[in-house]
Design a protein around this nucleic acid. Sequence first.
DNA 1: ATAGGGTTAG
Length: 855
Amino acid sequence: MASLPLPTTPNPHFSRSRYTQTRKSINVTTTHLPNFQNNEQRFPISYKSYFHHISSLCKEGQLPEALAILTEMELEGFQIGPEIYGELLQGCVYERALFTGQQIHARILKNGDFFSSNEYIETKLVIFYAKCDLPEVATELFQRLRKQNVFSWAAMIGLYCRIGCNEEALLGVCEMHENGYFPDNYVVPNALKACSALQLVKFGKGVHGYVIKMGFDCCVFVASSLVDMYGKCGVLEDARKVFNLMPERNVVAWNSMIVGYVQNGLNEETMEVFYNMRVEGIEPTRVTIASFLSAAANLDAIEEGRQVHAIAVLSGLELDNILGTSFINFYAKVGKIEDAELIFSRMNERDVVTWNLLISSYVQDGQVETALDICHQMRSENLRFDSVTLASILSAFADSSNIKLGKVGHCYCIKNNFVSDVVVSSSIINMYAKCGKIEYARRVFNTSMQSDLVLWNTLIAAYAELGLSGEALKLFYQMQLEGVPPNLISWNSVILGFLKNSQVNEARDLFLQMQSAGVQPNLITWTTLINGLAQNGYGYEAILLFQKMQAAGIQPNVVSIVCVLSACTTIASLLYGRTIHGYVMRHEISTSPSIVTSLVDMYAKCGSIDLAKKVFDSILNKELPCYNAMILGHALHGQPAGAFAFFEEMKKEKIQPDGITFTGLLSACSHAGLVDKGFEVFTEMFSKYHVMPSKEHYGCLVTLLSRCGSLEGALRFILTMPIEPDAHILGSLLAACREHNETDLGKYLSEHLFKLEPDNSGNYIAVSNIYASTGKWDEVSQLRDLMKQKGLRKDPGCSWIQIGEELHVFVAGDGSHPQTEVIYHMLSGLEREMRFMGYVTADGNIKYPASKSIT
DNA sequence: ATAGGGTTAG
């Protein structure tokens, strides 16, 4: 019989019969033990051999076999020492085998005090229960410990970290330190993790100091954790410093740096680190790839993402659920939905996240039907919808204004208790608002959690979109009374509300207010303002604002470029339009379809049909909007043949025309005086192309008749058309009155116009044009003063150009067209179509010379 | 020690 190193005192509970019972209970078959069973010679096996065998079985995860040997040892009469139980418990820790571990714990207890009060065993038990994520049991055993040590502390701190009790974890670190146990390089990473979870950079820095003092800073684990902590706390400079100082860097160190950049939106830096990592020859892991893909998705970097896809395949990385979803996310975000689908079909395991990502991909792509299809498939695979699924499909119903399905979705949320999720309820509010049911949105908001910022923002955005700026502002104040401080999105929405309601000054004022409140405007704020100014007739100021934005260090994106191009268009600034075109070419965003379309539109409307055509020809997949831009461009040039040629080309390419196409064709007819052709197009529009005529189309015909036919014919047409004439239509009649010197009829129509829209500044301009054309400058001045009194500053009916200190004001030949046309005429040398009205000096006074030619 | 999905603003 081999001698035991421990215990030195006999165990009173030890008896053969007890262990025989245990043997039965664990159902051991001796076939597991070939070396021992088949050895007929039966050399005496030493305790040490048994121990090593158990130890290696435990390390291989063969716990039942290890237990069987334990039983065999007991049958052989060995007294079991703590190190054997320790090995077994360690095996259970590796395997997270809670049940087996509990059995071992029971055996230890049966062996009595000697074992259960052994420091080594006690610690192992704490570690075991901690690793099995049982905080109650682990804490109880930890508190009953006769002697704590670094290991038991490490286990408890690790447990607290895993289950998200980060405060407890940090308190533990402090307490162990106070009790004289120095946190080792296994405890430090957990402490740092807790710091980042709690965003306690200062505590993290303290730990960093401790790390340096203890000399742990050369430990890769610790240093990587420091990089991770600084990254998660947003202190990228410090993360980088630690990273640069690391004597050796493994994949995790590189990954931590990459993850830090990606999570802070520093996408370019992420890519740079990735490339450096490649240069150093470090093989990427799934973490590397997933993080890189996230950056590539944010940057719309299709090529880079595809290359990394190839790298992942070449590196033989397994396409697990998380890596797979990263690929789906990347391909969906860059608009390659087919590739996203392909990845999805190749994945072996899919969970709710995977399915949700595919659903939201289709929603973002505007494919509502397919998204719903996927929902059904998801259900047939016995996966339940969660709040993420519902938020996605509700936003799909919002985008497609499908209130019927929206209501079904709302009911589903009520039945399945999703309405308490703020993300879901904000989706419901948004859905009702986008479906035109603002009162339903309000009611859902009233019954929801009123402490959530996003819910407030959703409702404010809904009112803002409708131009109900008063209501939006009221909510903006109300949320602050309820103790919810507004964020950037709240400010942006209120500004948008003002601009949608033509309250340009209020919008500008709020833009200043937000800055004095310490909220810095972002790209969206600037773009909202630029777009709003352009839409309200302040094209020049919009361009100045765009330049100011760039001076403030904010890089424009696709949306802001499109907005500033539309500003160029409204004031026909070919010069600045070309500047923007240059910017676009230099920054390699010239492939964006919306920018290209805007460029065509800008050139066409600013008077350079040749440049418009040049850009148009460079487009590979031409869609409806760029054809429309070319048609409108030719219409404005008074080239109906060109407009109709593009219409024919469009038909050849099997592109369905829409309402805008026909507005272009009709205005081409109106410019060229083709009355019959105009009515032919009008008839074809609804009989052949099933496009319902809108107010705009009727307006074009009224202009056509009043210009080319007779004023009388136009009046008769107005009486027979199926819609009420709006201000725009009356405006074009008014212009015709001026052409025909029908001043009395003009004055009569003006009264109607002011009744229809008393605060529309465009009407003031239209009426003042009548007076201007007959040289009645006093009346013009009176109307301008009235506009100033009313706070109206919008000047869509006339146009101006700055020459030195003077602002020269022009009016179009018939005064009925947007100012764009005026400057277009000027640029294309068609001065005869235009009449010079006067000029505004720098101090704001208007001077009206009798006449002036333009050079 | 490091990695994946949803809501609100242009």
